[in-house]
């Protein structure tokens, strides 16, 4: 019996494709957040319904590492004493829980932009609501694809 032959009898190995998420912080299979629960949480955090607009979310089209996906949120605002962003709430709709982070800004921020790195168990949407100093709420969303990978070249 050849070497290769005997090897395949003895070694039954886990592969990437099968076991990629076994020890990761979020396994896709445990996801329980949904688009509805994510929106519900945003409503609670921001205490109201938001209009779409004023928010730009930058993120890679395809996450190169679902454990750390860079996300940049920019809110259109002059950031003056009279007119500024007070808070930015970020949630995701495909993780075990929808919450990601909430940020508080002040006129001293000068520019309403924050960058963070997010765990994403699977392809899902990042949803953002900004609370403005006049009490208005604005929302934006962006999908990030999380793939199995490994077949390019």
């Amino acid at each position: 019996m050849s070497q290769a032959r005997s090897l395949n009898r003895r070694t039954v190995m886990l592969t990437s494709i099968a076991a990629a998420t076994a020890l990761s912080q979020f396994a896709a299979a445990t996801a329980s957040a949904t688009p509805d629960s994510a929106k519900e949480l945003l409503k609670t955090l921001a205490r109201g319904d938001a209009k779409e607009g004023k928010i730009a979310i930058r993120a890679p089209e395809i996450a190169e590492n679902g454990n750390t996906v860079p996300v940049t949120v920019t809110v259109e605002s002059p950031m003056t004493d009279k007119d500024h962003v007070k808070a930015i709430h970020v949630v995701a709709d495909g993780n075990p829980n929808p919450g990601v982070a909430s940020f508080q800004l002040t006129p001293l921020s000068g520019k309403a932009e924050v960058q963070l790195r997010v765990r994403m168990a699977s392809t899902q949407k990042i949803l953002v609501v900004a609370e403005m100093s006049d009490g208005s709420l604005w929302s934006g969303a962006r999908e990030v694809k999380v793939t199995i990978g490994g077949c390019g070249g």
Partner: peptide, 26 residues
């Protein structure tokens, strides 16, 4: 900054290991 609040964050477990953040300051 010099005692005045300029930025705050509340983080959930969905934030990656070795949390990184950037923000702006005038």
């Amino acid at each position: 900054y010099n005692g005045k609040p300029v930025f705050a964050a509340k983080l959930e477990p969905a934030i990656s290991a070795n949390p990184y953040m950037s923000f702006f300051l005038r």
